[in-house]
Simulated assay, not measured.
Amino acid sequence: MKSILITGASAGIGRATAEHFLAKGWCVGLLARSIAPLEEIAAGQVGAVVLPCDVTDASAVEAAFKQFMGKAGRLDVLFNNAGSFGTAAPIDELPLEAWRAAVDVNLNGMFYAARAAFAEMRAQSPQGGRIINNGSVSAHAPRENAVSYTVTKHAITGLTKALSLDGRSLDIACGQIDIGNARTALLEELAAKTPDNPPPMMDVRHVAEAVYSMATLPLEANVQFMTLMATKMPYIGRG
């Protein structure tokens, strides 16, 4: 049975992806802070491993990966997905604690998960695996009043490139999926605030399918960067 660990698996893109991989017969590590939704996803699923964990706690992340390895035996894929949009504000109005919180989740948390996955993939036999980082359209073109999200997602692009290079000789592939406007509860909530001008959205299942496509490639092949977004989203030229 192939295995994947998904951070931020309790809702949105993470949950949709977890459910897709479970339906495909994979062993799926469900990692998030809230245990109740993880247990709901895992109910009746033989391959589900519930891993309650805060990604901003490096020691807890390492322990969760060790727990998953004890259940699955190996780690084929990490979907490094957990993230937070944070506080919307111009830079001079952004509280410093909000900046630090965004960096802690979107950058430190993804670094901790990638670090733990890289170590397991390097040590296991046969060696290797795949790390898929969830970037964002904001890793290329920012939205207004989203400085903390934009900066941290740009940093994830650097993380992806560094992991690709450092993992090359170890059969550890790393790629990034940059997603724009997948229909999740969070985006629906934001859209409800502008009912006269709702943002274009796509079904979140397309993201799950794209991650599955990236995950099932042989390690000799890699999707380095993929941008998947609602077709009518103002990304090109949005500035």
Rank of each mutant, 00 (worst) to 15 (best):
L30V: 00
Y212S: 14
L78E: 09
F118P: 02
P90T: 05
L5C: 03
K66S: 14
D54C: 07
P95N: 03
D178T: 04
A146Y: 06
L94K: 00
G175I: 03
D76V: 09
A192W: 04
L5W: 01
G86T: 09
L78P: 05
K24F: 07
A116C: 00
A208S: 10
I156R: 00
N222V: 13
P218N: 07
S213F: 14
L170I: 07
A192N: 02
I35Y: 03
A192C: 05
Y212L: 13
V77N: 11
A139Q: 04
A119L: 06
P199N: 15
I41N: 05
I13K: 06
G167Q: 01
A64M: 05
A146H: 12
A60H: 02
Y112N: 13
V137K: 07
L75E: 09
T157A: 13
A43I: 04
V207W: 02
L31C: 10
L187R: 10
L170K: 15
S34D: 14
T194Q: 13
D196R: 14
S10N: 04
V105C: 00
S136T: 06
D166G: 12
R115K: 13
E39K: 14
P142I: 03
G86L: 02
D166H: 13
W26V: 08
L30Y: 07
S138Q: 15
A48Q: 11
D54T: 09
A16K: 08
S84M: 13
I41Y: 07
D76H: 10
D171H: 15
K161I: 07
K24W: 06
G180L: 02
V103L: 12
S34C: 11
Q224I: 14
R122A: 08
A146F: 04
T7S: 08
P37C: 12
G135R: 07
M226G: 11
D57F: 05
T160M: 01
H206I: 01
A146N: 11
F111Q: 10
Q176R: 10
V46C: 12
K24M: 10
R238D: 04
T150V: 09
L38S: 09
G29V: 00
E189T: 09
F118Q: 00
V49C: 11
G44E: 06
I13Y: 08
N133F: 00
G83Y: 02
T56E: 02
V55L: 05
M1P: 04
K2M: 08
T7Q: 01
G175N: 06
A36T: 15
P198Y: 11
A11P: 05
L159E: 03
S164F: 10
I41S: 02
E40A: 15
A82L: 03
A98E: 08
V103Y: 12
S169C: 12
A215S: 13
E39A: 10
I236V: 14
V77T: 12
K193F: 05
P195C: 06
N81M: 10
I41W: 01
A16Q: 05
A221I: 03
I41D: 03
K24I: 03
V61L: 01
